[in-house]
Simulated assay, not measured.
Amino acid sequence: MSAKWTDQRLVRVDRSYDLERASDGFSRFGEYLRLNASLFRDAWRDEPAPVKDPAEFAVHAWRVATSPVMAPGYVRCRPDLHGVTLHRDDYDHALYAEVRVPLRHHHLYAGEKKFPYAWQDWEAERYDAPFPELEEPRETKRPAVLASAVVRVPGGEWSGLVTPSAYEGRTLTNEAMETVSIVVQYVNEDAGPIVERLLS
């Protein structure tokens, strides 16, 4: 991956790894799309047809492109975050994204308020990394305060999302790649500054 993580880059596509690990010589992501082909068929039609809603297509493509369906994913999430997911509103089906952000104790301090030293925090394997992966503490005999925030950004105005023309094959793979690349751009643009401010 050529693009490095930054304070506002939360997600990125790893096309090089995807191509290198593709058993068909084209895309590992495409193989996972094939295994999850039912997600991309219109459930309301008797004859096989692709879903027609770009938001629905984006949600399904993103789900397949990210962990835990693909591990490592076609879309990678910054290591210090606990996931970036896409959803459609239950009421009007509008698209939105959620970023799960672990908050370490120093992010929660206000004025003189500090937690006792004995209270455990999120742990990192490597503290020298700029965005270390944060995990629950292994010790269970001491209290732990493990806080996190959900940053939600609307995607109803995101332009360029693909209306799919296929529910399988190379065309599905190309359209899914295009859609998740667009979502990556918008998530970084819209949620990136919020996450940066939250963690500053």
Rank of each mutant, 00 (worst) to 15 (best):
V151R: 02
V153T: 15
E139W: 06
A144T: 06
S148T: 06
V151E: 00
R138C: 06
S159C: 02
D128Y: 09
V153F: 03
S148P: 09
R126C: 03
E139Y: 08
S148G: 10
E133T: 09
A129Y: 12
E139I: 14
G156T: 15
E136S: 04
Y127V: 07
P154L: 13
L146D: 02
A144Q: 03
E157W: 13
V151D: 00
R126D: 02
K141W: 13
V150A: 13
G155D: 14
P154W: 12
E136W: 07
L134F: 02
E139T: 11
L134N: 00
P154V: 11
V145F: 01
A124S: 07
V153H: 04
R126G: 01
V151I: 12
P132D: 02
A124T: 14
V150P: 00
P130W: 13
P143K: 14
V145C: 01
E125N: 11
E136N: 06
S148N: 08
A124W: 01
E135A: 06
E139P: 00
G156Y: 14
A144L: 10
E125H: 05
V153Y: 04
E157I: 06
A124L: 12
R152P: 03
P132Q: 03
D128K: 06
S148F: 12
Y127P: 00
A144R: 10
P137F: 07
V145Q: 03
L146P: 00
G156S: 13
E139S: 11
P130E: 01
V151T: 05
K141Q: 10
A124F: 00
R152M: 08
A147Q: 07
E133L: 10
V150L: 14
A149M: 12
R142A: 12
W158I: 15
E125F: 04
A149N: 08
V145W: 01
V145M: 05
A124N: 02
A149D: 02
G156M: 08
W158E: 11
T140L: 13
T140I: 11
S159H: 05
E125Y: 06
V150N: 06
K141P: 00
P137Q: 11
A129S: 09
E136K: 06
P143A: 11
R142S: 15
R152W: 04
E136Q: 03
A147D: 05
W158N: 06
P130A: 08
D128W: 06
P143H: 08
A129H: 12
V150E: 07
P132N: 04
R152T: 15
E135Y: 14
P137K: 05
A147L: 12
R138A: 15
L134Q: 04
F131G: 00
A124I: 09
R138N: 04
K141D: 13
G155P: 01
R126F: 01
E157L: 06
T140S: 12
S159F: 03
F131V: 01
S148E: 15
P132M: 11
L146A: 03
W158G: 09
V145H: 02
E133I: 08
R126N: 08
R138T: 15
G155N: 11
V153G: 03
R126T: 03
T140W: 02
A124H: 05
A144D: 00
G156W: 13
G156N: 11
R126E: 01
S159K: 08
R138V: 10
A144C: 08
S148Q: 05
R152F: 08
E125Q: 09
R152N: 12
E125L: 10
W158Y: 05
G155H: 08
R138I: 07
E125I: 07
A149V: 15
Y127N: 00
P132I: 04
D128R: 10
V150R: 03
